[in-house]
Amino acid sequence: MSIARVNRLSPYMFMAPAVVIMAIALIYPLGYMIWGSFRDWAPSQTIGEAEFVGLKNYITLWNDPNFHESLTVTLKFAFFVVSIEMVIGVGLALLLDRDIRGMSMLRTMLILPMMIAPVVVGLMWRYMYHPTVGTFNRTLDSLGLPRVDWLGDHALMSVIIADIWQWTPFIFILSLAALQSLPRSALEAARIDGATAWQQIIYIKLPLMMPVLIVTCLLRLIDAFKVLEVILVLTEGGPGLSTEILALRISRTATEFRELGVAAAMSNYLLLLLMLLTVGMFAFTRWQEARAARIRALAEEDS
């Protein structure tokens, strides 16, 4: 083998171990799942024994009202948590982007929820939501207000609140970082141009933060579609199907209903949805880079 050839191949040789691990830990299970989703497959069977049923699992799901319900719950959950978290997170960042005493302490405290394990968050909120001894209802009692059936009638709202509590800090720190990297003098110029605090936010700060906000929003959306632990601990999907998000339904289909093929098909639907979001995110960053390159090229052209 010539030296040039070895040189050309060496990057691939260095990458090989990583590729092998990826293949074993990601591609293989993924392929297994896709293969399994075309079969009527019980946990007691090996995949070879399972009967091949073509697209039957996908079609069944497509027509299954429970799956629709679960998909709707997931979409609702993702929409509400992400939009509310964006508003609160960005709002907090805008409020706390200033130098006053104790601000760094406050910022550190605000990001604490993000550092707590989701299972612990679930347990904590389950205790606080408890109908008789929970913090919320006892507070309502002492104020003389009627109790709220947090994890019953308002289960979806309650899990949304818990998720907002945990994940708003994520948006908050990313927005704050974006805010603090804005050009100071452009904001000063806006003040001199006559912009009120509110107009500075609308016309200068938010547009300049937008690239970061869009990526943050997509990251949170991807996460929100996969959420499991907090809801599992808080409600186990109930009451009824009211909080049964897709991840939870997939796990129950596989373990309780013992239908591995259907669970695999459902996973693939979720995967497709997430892939769309991810591709959207990449497309957005690519578009931005292309635009920046075009603008730079224009500047060089006539200088």
């Binding site: 000063e188 003040r191 001199i192 141009d193 300049l208």
Partner: peptide
């Protein structure tokens, strides 16, 4: 600043990008 009737040119231009 907006109530002082003035305009300003900054060292780094401070344009709105």
């Amino acid at each position: 600043p907006k109530d002082r009737d003035l305009a300003m040119v900054f060292q780094d231009y401070a344009l709105y990008p």
